[in-house]
């Protein structure tokens, strides 16, 4: 997966538990044994990570399909 994703629309979101804003953090996502480093919005304090809609049905779905056909 392309680790340099376009700017995400994460404006306004913050962690409910920590009341902290989200920051872009490099996260290793995995699927079918393959692993990719992706910048994802995460809580600066507890590291709870968000996967936004456009990513889930955009690049992430593309990669899922590629890996399923691998």
């Amino acid at each position: 997966m392309d680790p340099t994703l376009p700017d995400m629309d994460i404006e306004g979101w913050f962690c409910q538990k920590c009341n902290s804003p989200l920051t872009m953090v490099k996260v290793n996502v995995t699927y079918m044994g393959a692993s990719f480093a992706v910048d994802l919005p995460s809580c600066a304090n507890c590291h709870t990570t968000m996967i936004p809609d456009f990513l889930a049905f955009g690049k992430m779905l593309e990669v899922e399909k590629l890996l399923e056909d691998k």
Partner: peptide, 18 residues
């Protein structure tokens, strides 16, 4: 809004490992 994905990301609750 509702969405879903199969990929696993540490940090998303319930997604410790595949």
């Amino acid at each position: 809004q509702v969405w879903c994905h199969r990929m696993v990301a540490p940090g998303v609750p319930g997604e410790g490992a595949e």
